[in-house]
Structure formats: structure tokens, C-alpha cells
Amino acid sequence: MLHPMTLYRADPFALLRRFGETLDRMPFGTAAPAFPPLNLWQNEAAVAIVAQVPGVAPEDIEITAKDDVLTITGQRRPPEMPEGAVWHRRERAFGRFTRIVRLPFAVDPSQVEARFANGVLTIALQRPEDQRPRRIEIKAG
């Protein structure tokens, strides 16, 4: 927590600012965290999204991509329990969910690839070939 730079004389407010940044990251909000939680990777040609969807059957997930918007919808079904079962602890949540992600660029809908394994959903999206940035050669004049 105490970074060496916080004691550096040139910036007397570094420690205070760092504390403020830590507070900013704390989950004080009362809203439930969005489901499913997702991580996003990108470069100039592709985007990869990894989402944690424990307890969701792959056939209950629907993924659509249009231009630069990716939509993930699905349903978490509660487990089937026999008559007379008593719930002692209920920490998991069930029901329908939707997440809409705006991607950094329009993607090719025909090149979207989704994989599901062990409750983790991985989606790979490609930027159309003709929209990728191109390196421009500088000619010697």
C-alpha cells in the first residue's frame, strides 16, 4: 500500500491521492454487480471476452453481435429439488440476465466464435479485414 514514491517530497499529495484512488475502486454501490462478470481483451484487429457464467447451461445462453454491439442474454435456472426441501443458505442468484457491451470497433458477425467450458464463456470477435489499421510506408524523397 505504501509506495516508495508516496514519501517523495516533490508530490506531497501522492499518498492522499492514492488513498482516494483506492476508495474509488471500492464497491460501495448498492446495486447488485452485473451478471455475468466479464473481462475484455483487445488489440487493433480482435476482441476477446471472457465471462463467468456458473450454473448456466450452454443452450440457455444467446449471443448476438451487430456492428459494434455485443449482447449476451440467458437464464440461470434454479436447481430442481424434491418436495419438502429446506433451503438453509442461498448465496447464488437465478433468473434471466442480459449484458450489452459496446466494442471498440464494428466486428464481422460471421467471424464470432464462442466457447463454453466449466462455467466460463469465451467469445472471440474479429474486426473486418478492410477496416483494420494499415501501416503506411514512408518513402524516401
Binding site: 463467468q52 457464467v53 456458473p54 450454473g55 436447481p79 429439488m81 424434491p82 419438502g84 426441501a85 429446506v86 433451503w87 438453509h88 443458505r89 442461498r90 448465496e91 447464488r92 466449466n118 462455467g119 466460463v120
Partner: peptide, 22 residues
């Protein structure tokens, strides 16, 4: 991990969320 605990006539059922574990 988040866990649900249910008691049935036969015993106890634990459902533990562990995404990414084989």
C-alpha cells in the same frame, strides 16, 4: 465460493459455484 445449502429427506445438498475449474 458462493454456496447454496439445501436439506432434503435424504440428507444435505451443497451447490458450490466454481467457474473455471475442471
Amino acid at each position: 465460493p458462493l454456496t447454496d445449502v439445501v436439506e432434503t429427506a435424504e440428507g444435505i445438498v451443497l451447490m458450490i459455484e466454481m467457474p473455471g475449474v475442471v
